[in-house]
């Protein structure tokens, strides 16, 4: 601060114009600038979310949304003639919940392990490193729909190259119906998702690796400590905060997964996730009330998972980063 002000400058640096006309003008301008964005978000996110909550308490249908009448919690749970009905008693819903959790846990774990390995490779000095980094980014750039179609073709039971290779190597005797069988389809879906999202985790891990101080590695090398030990004792703890951020981004994505599963296995129950279940009820069965109940539960589960994660990780979110 080189300007001559009468107030002490140290604590004032953050808010130099407090109480002045300029500052009032700036605050007013700030809200004017924020208004269009906030109105848009309210229109496409806030209001629709509230309507979804409301629809989940009605018997609305897609063709006659206006005629929806309030039925309380009947979409969730209702007792009628000695039997419980509703979303919470639907085994398919619980199947979808389990599938989603399984998918999220397995695919995110695999992505972190392989992402860190790829990041370690890219962090080494070698000729053509930029080229390899660009190539590794390709799966991330490919639209999910396209990557699902590409893998569906490679995983094709009769003519797919993967069955062809596995049979040529003598690993399997007969072709596997990867996307149709109840046993393999979940793993096929996970495989495609992992392929597509390793680059994201790898890039975040690489960014963290490049910020590490060099001197402790030199010390470790002088002391002759095995590189694997150095990785687990030094590198991993230091990049864990960055990995945690990657994990939460990926977990939130994985819990709402839709595209890759819809294209690979459609509405099959062995890979049905919460998003697939909710959309099927909403759009294909036109049952907006019931589908909205499923959407609402999905929203609550994700919100709860986020809060729990932030709490357990004791991660201080520095809003705005200052």
């Amino acid at each position: 601060m080189t300007t001559t002000t009468t107030t002490p400058s140290a604590p004032e640096r953050a808010r130099p114009y407090r109480g002045t006309k300029v500052r009032r003008q700036r605050v007013r301008a700030a809200w004017t600038f924020l208004a269009p964005m906030l109105v848009t978000l309210a229109l496409v996110a806030g209001w629709p979310l509230l309507r979804t909550f409301y629809f989940s308490l009605t018997d609305g249908t897609l063709s006659a949304l206006g005629d929806a009448s309030f039925i309380g919690l009947e979409n969730y749970l209702v007792y009628d003639n000695g039997t419980w009905y509703g979303l919470l008693t639907d085994p398919l819903w619980w199947r979808a919940v389990w599938n989603t959790v399984f998918f999220a846990a397995v695919s995110v774990s695999l992505e972190v392990v392989f992402g860190v390995i790829v990041a370690l490779i890219l962090n080494a000095e070698f000729r053509g490193r930029m080229l390899v980094r660009a190539a590794v980014l390709i799966p991330w750039a490919i639209p999910t729909i396209v990557s699902a179609k590409m893998w569906a073709w490679m995983l094709n039971d009769q003519f797919g190259i993967i069955n062809h290779l596995l049979m040529a190597l003598g690993l399997i005797d007969s072709p596997i119906a990867w996307t149709a069988s109840a046993t393999y389809s979940m793993w096929a879906v996970i495989m495609v998702d992992v392929w597509k999202t390793i680059p994201f985790v790898a890039l975040l891990a690489l960014a963290a690796l490049q910020m590490l101080p060099k001197d402790c590695y030199e010390a470790a090398e002088v002391d002759g400590i095995h590189p694997v030990r150095v990785f687990f004792k030094v590198t991993l703890p230091l990049i864990t905060p960055a990995l945690m951020v990657a994990v939460i981004f990926r977990l939130l994505d994985a819990l709402r997964v839709f595209d890759v599963i819809y294209v690979l296995t459609s509405n099959a129950s062995s890979t049905m996730t919460m998003s697939i279940y909710a959309r099927q009820q909403l759009v294909e069965f036109q049952d907006v009330g019931y589908g909205s109940a499923a959407s609402t539960l999905l929203f609550l589960i994700i919100a709860l998972a986020t809060v729990a994660y932030l709490y357990l990780g004791r991660k201080q979110l520095q809003l705005g980063g200052d």
């Binding site: 924020l34 906030l38 978000l41 229109l43 496409v44 996110a45 209001w47 629709p48 979310l49 509230l50 309507r51 979804t52 629809f55 609305g60 897609l62 949304l65 939130l252 819990l255 709402r256 839709f258 919460m274 998003s275 909710a278 959309r279 909403l282 907006v288 589908g291 909205s292 959407s295 609402t296 999905l298 929203f299 994700i302 919100a303 986020t306 979110l317 809003l319 705005g320």
Partner: peptide, 23 residues
């Protein structure tokens, strides 16, 4: 405002599907 923005980016798209359809 920052928290609201962060919250919206966490929304599962399916959660707003029926409300957004109506809008």
């Amino acid at each position: 405002v920052m928290l609201v923005i962060l919250g919206v980016s966490m929304f599962p798209q399916v959660a707003v599907l029926s409300g957004l359809f109506e809008v």
